[in-house]
Amino acid sequence: MLKTLKDLFDSLLPPAPGADPRSAEHTLQLATAVMLVEVMRADASFHAGEREAVRAALRDKFTLSAEEADRLAELAEATAQGATDLFAFTSRINERFEMPQKLRMVEHMWRVAYADGHLSDHERHVLWRVADLLHVPQGAYVHARLRAQQQAGET
């Protein structure tokens, strides 16, 4: 447990010059997973559909196995509980993702929000805040929402 927490804190520090590229990739994966989990945590209760949407997004985004996505999602939940802000995570994403990757991530976040069949004001706020921190233009943000809404069968 202690090693896992140390690894977590180390992953949030800027990578040292010449650092292992796998470490940077793991940090990016964790940052992305935390953003997805933040949407799930925005509701008063967790819904199984939301958890599955987080895992599906991680499998899609990073080509992870089901077991790897489960493990990453669990680590992200623990990390999100102890987080004091979103900037530490969104800054990592901004460093590594181009706009199309950010848009895909925002769309996955909307899918998590719609997974329980109910979109709360808090979920909407978290999504808006993350999209703003990722410098996603308003029009692209709305289109990502519409794509996720259409897939979820919402109107």
Rank of each mutant, 00 (worst) to 15 (best):
P14C: 06
P14Q: 08
P15C: 01
P15V: 10
A16I: 10
P17V: 05
G18I: 11
G18E: 08
G18W: 10
A19F: 03
R22D: 14
S23E: 14
A24I: 13
A24Y: 04
E25T: 12
H26C: 00
H26F: 11
T27G: 15
L28R: 13
L30I: 04
A31L: 04
A33D: 05
A33I: 10
A33N: 09
V34Y: 06
M35Y: 02
M35N: 13
E38K: 05
V39F: 06
V39K: 03
M40T: 06
M40G: 01
R41K: 15
A42N: 06
D43N: 12
D43F: 06
A44Y: 08
S45L: 14
S45H: 12
F46L: 15
H47N: 14
H47T: 01
A48W: 06
A48Q: 14
A48D: 13
A48L: 13
E50C: 11
E50F: 10
R51D: 11
R51L: 08
R51N: 09
E52H: 09
E52I: 09
E52C: 01
A53V: 02
A53G: 03
A53W: 03
R55C: 07
R55V: 03
A57P: 07
D60Y: 08
K61E: 15
F62K: 02
F62S: 06
T63K: 13
L64I: 11
L64G: 02
L64Y: 02
L64P: 07
A66P: 02
A66T: 13
A66M: 10
E67C: 04
E67T: 12
E68L: 09
E68T: 01
E68I: 02
D70Y: 05
D70C: 00
R71F: 01
A73N: 06
A73E: 14
E74C: 00
A76D: 10
A76W: 04
T79G: 01
T79A: 15
T79K: 02
T79Y: 03
A80S: 15
A80E: 14
Q81C: 00
Q81T: 13
A83T: 11
A83G: 07
T84L: 09
L86K: 07
L86H: 12
F87Y: 14
A88I: 11
F89G: 01
F89H: 12
R92C: 03
N94S: 13
R96A: 15
F97K: 00
M99W: 00
P100F: 06
P100V: 01
Q101W: 04
Q101F: 03
L103T: 04
L103W: 03
R104I: 02
R104N: 09
M105F: 08
V106F: 08
V106M: 13
E107R: 15
E107N: 10
H108N: 12
M109W: 04
M109I: 03
M109T: 02
W110F: 13
V112Y: 11
A113W: 05
Y114P: 07
Y114D: 06
A115P: 10
A115G: 02
D116S: 13
D116Q: 01
G117V: 05
G117F: 04
G117L: 04
G117K: 09
H118I: 08
L119T: 09
L119F: 08
S120R: 09
S120T: 15
S120G: 11
D121I: 01
D121N: 12
H122W: 05
E123W: 04
E123L: 02
R124T: 14
H125K: 15
V126H: 06
V126I: 15
V126C: 09
L127M: 12
R129C: 00
R129Y: 08
